[in-house]
Write a protein that binds this DNA or RNA. Structure first.
Length: 121
DNA sequence: GGCATGACATTGC
DNA sequence: AGCAATGCCATGC
């Protein structure tokens, strides 16, 4: 299986084994989200194996450096609304990124069911 | 080790 | 459908 990126379950396992910390697991998983897809904070937390730690996902992403390669913009709220909508800095940037990937956003919200990423197990 | 903080999720009104 | 209140958990001090 020549996948260029680790599978979601592998990340969850690595985190469970303590090989990587929660934050690193978040970064790795977010990095797996394909172009044009999105995921809710809770969804990311669940895939890592820590359902309920949705807030920490945001906390981890907030710690990302400006020029990071992690596609943090593909992570939104579970209902498809932009958490950073009120942020004059990252908000517009996130919306622009998503739209550039083909996701139609109206009033800082988009159809999550239509763009939600579902790892193929 | 305990306390306060926070890019969320859910439920109830 | 929209708003308010409550629960959850990793981080940092």
């Amino acid at each position: 299986v020549a996948t260029d990126a680790p599978e979601a379950w592998q990340i969850a396992e690595a985190h469970a084994d303590g090989a990587i910390g929660f934050r690193d697991a978040v970064y790795a998983l977010v990095g797996c989200i394909p172009h044009g897809k999105a995921l809710g904070y809770g969804g990311v937390a669940s895939l890592i194996g820590r359902p309920g730690a949705a807030r920490q996902v945001g906390y981890a992403l907030a710690a990302l450096p400006p020029g990071t390669e992690v596609p943090w913009w593909r992570v939104t709220r579970s209902d498809g609304s932009i958490a950073l909508a009120g942020d004059p800095n990252r908000g517009p940037a996130q919306v622009a990124r998503l739209q550039a990937e083909g996701i139609a956003i109206v009033e800082h919200r988009f159809d999550m069911d239509r763009h939600k990423w579902v790892p193929h197990a």
